[in-house]
Design a binder for these strands. Structure first.
Lengths: 331, 331
DNA sequence: CTGTTAGCGCCTTCAA
DNA sequence: TTGAAGGCGCTAACAG
């Protein structure tokens, strides 16, 4: 079933059917006839032929590190919402945080396949940047800030400031930080900077020993880092964790060591995942607006596709602190 | 940059380049020449042209109710793993559990766009079934069992049996069930049947009042249903919840009512989400192998696409009970 | 082993 | 307002 069948059945030319399908001039009479035939046959134009002809395919490539990570899934949820609204569909590239795969998809989408790309970045190498800058088609980086590329990023710095400030307000004097690799600018560098700056602002001493870098993002990584901290025998009464998951691991580890949260140590972190408000103790955490970030990235991309605006658009998402039991808040 | 440019630069015909790209016969000499040109130019064939010509586009449509739901994300993770391995990509249709949208995507994918479809089903109407049966191209239903359609489903019945059995073993005599709508055969009907059959097998009385249907799948729905149960003033010492999320809501509600888990009431549920092992009390739950289900569905689909096998393939995923604090298990 | 050639289904000028 | 015709980039006969 193709356009010429429809044309024949409706007694018109293929050009007229094409116009009918693409809001061109068609007389009322023929319009009705064509509609009738299309309804009856259930015809849908071949998207590959349309793409070949027009160069547009109404597809958005979305490259993600891990779809089963809660923040990532929320972002994708936001993206699909906006993008489907403009009758685009999402081509999902799930890389498993494999850098090679990320680059591969970035290359693949650049040449082919999609009208635009959203890349949820974690560790940004020079190769990533170069590839993104070489893009002729619209691309938006989500979750990391880069000045030379359109991006939607989260306020990791302020999130860390708020989380640390909260510990200070709780009366903590010796505040530790479980951080992640600085190669991740957002979750690593920004959050650590916010932490350090806030300590300084409050004239609190910054002890090297109190900043421990986790090997990864899992609970186990958080627990291991906490154990390292405990082994140092340094005193601390508050801790800012780079992510909720790390915080859960850390608290678990403290519990095994007989340390009570928040009585002996207050805990804050970033992400405000579902679990944060269910965990015992309920975790004080900063919400980064992941879903809204996805919506915003989708909107900017749609804008780039439709308006072909040249200037690089950016957006920083707001964050919001939720104070809960882990910093002594009542239930 | 297209195939004829490459052909010209390499001093061969387009057919030879095409053969090079599709494992056809090419002499070593020309092979090297073509490779050199392709490497130099970064050429990638136009997938829309390939699709138009061959009728295959290496795309799998995946229709999901909500990508930010943990079980769904796990299934999609499994699907992408298998499917990418066969150099297929995933076109994600996120419906927000909107039936109209589900049907719309089912129709859209039927005619166009993709080489195969995986549909993660919840509420299956006759329309869904009819549409799926009318498919000429490979389609796999995931998460629901239907005899006339290839499907990969979870052992919801046995999950309920194991969860209920566990409560019986804990010495519970008055066991309640927070269920969900029976229109969801898997999470509703099957789990309720498993529950009821297990009570009968153990010669325990089944009281209508002890089975409460939740209005939805959220924590709030679980809490509301539990409140209804408490309002009845019927005695119960164990409860089987249709999902973890409902269990969290129910436990929260009991806590507010001063009821202790597991001392006064034991709790079990299904899904074994991340939170289950972190919640206080750690939740006894049955794992359905969501990710493996996705892998299996992807494998069956790939098989259907490549072998064009006619017989309808099915697979039931195994489930596994994890006993934790909510049924009195030590930490 | 290689080149020529005819479309796949559609859109879009161009001429009527 | 409509139809004829060319071509988007590629593959698969077919002929050599």
């Amino acid at each position: 079933m193709n356009i010429s069948m429809i044309a024949k059945l409706a007694g018109v030319s293929t050009a007229t059917v094409s116009r009918y399908l693409n809001q061109g001039y068609v007389s009322e009479e023929k319009r009705l006839k064509i509609r009738e035939v299309i309804d009856r046959t259930g015809y849908m134009p071949s998207s590959s032929a349309q793409t070949l002809r027009t160069g547009r395919n109404n597809l958005i490539g979305v490259i993600v590190p891990k779809i089963s990570s809660e923040p990532v899934a929320k972002m994708v949820d936001g993206i699909t919402e906006v993008v489907n609204h403009s009758s685009y569909q999402v081509l999902l590239a799930n890389t498993g945080s494999n850098t090679e795969k990320e680059l591969e998809y970035l290359k693949m989408f650049r040449t082919n396949n999609v009208d635009g790309v959203i890349f949820i970045g974690t560790l940004m190498s020079k190769k990533h940047l170069a590839l993104m800058k070489s893009y002729k088609k619209p691309i938006v980086l989500l979750g990391q800030q880069e000045s030379e590329v359109p991006c939607v990023y989260y306020d990791d710095y302020d999130a860390a400031v708020q989380a640390t400030d909260c510990l200070v307000r709780c009366g903590c004097n010796n505040i530790a930080h479980l951080s992640v690799t600085l190669r991740d600018k957002a979750a690593g560098r920004e959050r650590r900077s916010g932490f350090i700056d806030t300590l300084q602002k409050n004239r609190l001493h910054i002890r090297e020993q109190l900043i421990v870098e986790c090997g990864g993002f899992s609970m186990e990584d958080g627990a291991v880092a906490m154990q390292k901290l405990l082994d140092c025998k340094v005193v601390f009464d508050g801790i800012f964790c780079a992510t909720d998951t790390i915080a859960f691991g850390a608290i678990d580890c403290m519990r095994r060591a007989g340390i009570h949260v928040p009585q002996q140590v207050c805990v804050t972190s970033v992400d405000n995942c579902q679990m944060a408000s269910l965990y015992d103790p309920r975790l004080t955490s900063v919400d980064l607006s992941h879903r809204t970030g996805g919506i915003e990235a989708g909107a900017i991309l749609m804008n780039m596709i439709h308006n072909e605006t040249k200037n690089i658009q950016n957006a920083k998402m707001p964050c919001h602190l939720y104070e809960r039991e882990s910093t002594g808040m009542d239930r």
